[in-house]
Design a protein around this nucleic acid. Structure first.
Lengths: 337, 337
DNA sequence: GTGAAAGCGCTAACAG
DNA sequence: CTGTTAGCGCTTTCAC
């Protein structure tokens, strides 16, 4: 019993006028007489007419929809980004199609195809950990699709980027540990092939070298989630190689490290100071509370969307990719002092 | 320089055949000769033809898109739900349009209109705290739009529902506190006009009455976020009216209560036991770890989507609303024993 | 001030 | 086996 929605034709028929007149009346075209407008609008309201966005999209080759490809929604950072995207899009009358890659390459490719098929007007992307080939995104780009990358960007891609200054933020975080007297600082790092992973590690290295501290490769461990952090801590403990400070590539990793250490009876921050990255709801809740770098997810989402909408709405402007770099804010709590 | 995407017509022109033949060839219609199929498919791949989903939607009055109206994305529970929705939709070849109401009524109305306009095939809704009027949703329903409510449902609405048994889960949580010897148990409750708020309170009341414990109205306080919990705890402390157990309507409220109490030097769970609701990433991270009720967000999202897709794909089946009640799982951690 | 006609990309009934 | 035609809902010239 799906009653077909009211169309412009229905209104035209009832009023004994032509569809074009109705169309014009609805958008307040100056040519149309006041009475006709009034009649049309009244009937439209009475029949609860809702314009068919699909037909409009087809006609104008503009869907008023933007697509988002995101690794995982269930992350405080990413859901904050989505929230920012959604708010800005909403205010501009755009809808948002969300796809999650679940960190998988094949799914990211499928997502890109789907969005292309749906003729979204632009796409916001943060790439999956697994992705090392980006032909699917280049394809979008070459097809003229505005593309804005956020957080996890593709190095060398001609496109707009919104990131935080990972290197600088990591530098600040590490420096903070050093200033509090830590000398043997470990880094639990992200995947090497992601810019964010590399940049954060570089910031860490810069802080060490600036302070004249030697780099101990055995203290740089690839671990970017809770479980891996637990394993890493155990290994360091077994080898009697525990550091006096740890800078992790994200907060959950920091929590994993912290709890594993506490289980070993190690006091934080007294014996080992810890600082995470990407301040989420977590950081104020752990005991001790976790120092971290605020990644400004909401802001990143809204800025990325503003850039994208700008590209969509004024496509003629000469295309020079912009990169917006947000400052990651060091938030010092109990775990590092 | 938006190069227009390849269409079926382009392929037809190049191959010197008709668009309908191309269309049929692409969908492997039995009538078409093998050679034609081969030629068409090869060219399609070479030109990177992508079917225009918009045109298809218009033609078939089916958009292969479902809409979601959700209060706030930045919540572990809701983002888990979205994740479940997205996964199931993806596997069925559907895309997902996400709208957040930000807990506001007017925005929920606008969202509903937007989804209607975009002719989504069905909608998943969890209503905003602010919403008390539901005409916008009834309008969808009356227009024949399949509607599935999850978690925050509308009482009395003829539609499918997916919820957890809030009453029973709250009962179990409260009973657990009682079994651990607590006698003066407070409840930090959600808004009265939401079913979930009422149900959780009722479960709490049932557990008390079953145990023969008197209900103390001064211990039932409307507080459903971190800040309100802090205020509530201070008030109780000022009045020298602290309970020996607290059951809160969500986890963040529990954390607020816990930290406010700890600041007063009160030991948890020794002096006051606490149990939350809606097990998120938080609960394993607090100190002490927080007992809670797992709300199965991912599962709720996927089940709701399955029901919705079912309605969409077999619309002729006689319509009898279904309600799926998931069991909320009590997860006992340190804060309550 | 209003209407007729064409077309956005695609499919499906009807012809051949 | 393939082509022609019409139409999904809407806008937009071009006529009158």
């Amino acid at each position: 019993m799906k009653n077909n929605p009211i169309t412009i034709k229905d209104i035209a028929r009832i009023l004994g006028i032509s569809p074009s007149t109705v169309s014009r009346a609805l958008k307040d075209h100056p040519d149309i007489s006041t009475e006709t407008k009034k009649a049309v609008n009244e009937l439209a309201v009475r029949l609860k007419y809702q314009p068919n966005a699909i037909a409009l999209s087809l006609k104008q080759s503009r869907s008023n929809t933007i697509g988002v490809i995101i690794p995982e929604i269930v992350h405080h950072f990413f859901s904050s980004v989505i929230s920012g995207i959604e708010d800005v899009a909403y205010n501009a009358g755009f809808t948002v199609m969300i796809c999650q890659s679940n960190e998988r390459y094949d799914r990211e490719v499928a997502n890109a195809k789907m969005l292309l098929s749906h003729r979204v007007d632009g796409v916001l992307v943060s790439i999956a950990k697994e992705s090392t080939n980006f032909d699917h995104l280049k394809l979008l780009k070459e097809g003229g699709m505005p593309l804005v990358f956020f957080d996890r960007i593709v190095p060398g891609m001609q496109a707009d980027h919104v990131v935080i200054d990972d290197e600088e933020a990591a530098y600040k975080a590490t420096k903070h540990l050093i200033e509090n007297g830590r000398k043997r600082i470990a880094h639990f790092s992200g995947p090497e092939h992601l810019m964010i992973g590399r940049n954060r590690k570089n910031g860490y290295l810069r802080a060490l070298s600036e302070a004249g501290l030697a780099v101990d490769p055995s203290l740089i461990i690839q671990a970017d989630n809770y479980e891996k952090a637990v394993v890493a801590v155990r290994r360091l403990a077994d080898l009697n190689n525990l550091p006096d400070g740890i800078f992790t590539t994200n907060d959950l990793t920091a929590v994993g490290a912290m709890q594993a250490l506490q289980k070993l009876g190690i006091e934080i921050p007294k014996q080992i100071a810890i600082i995470g990255f990407s301040d989420g709801r977590l950081s104020g809740i752990t005991n001790p509370t976790l120092s971290s770098v605020d990644q400004h997810g909401y802001e990143m989402g809204s800025i990325a969307t503003e850039i994208l909408l700008n590209r969509i709405l004024s496509p003629d402007e000469k295309y020079t990719p912009v990169t917006r770099v947000l400052e990651g804010q060091l938030v010092v709590r109990e775990s590092s002092i």
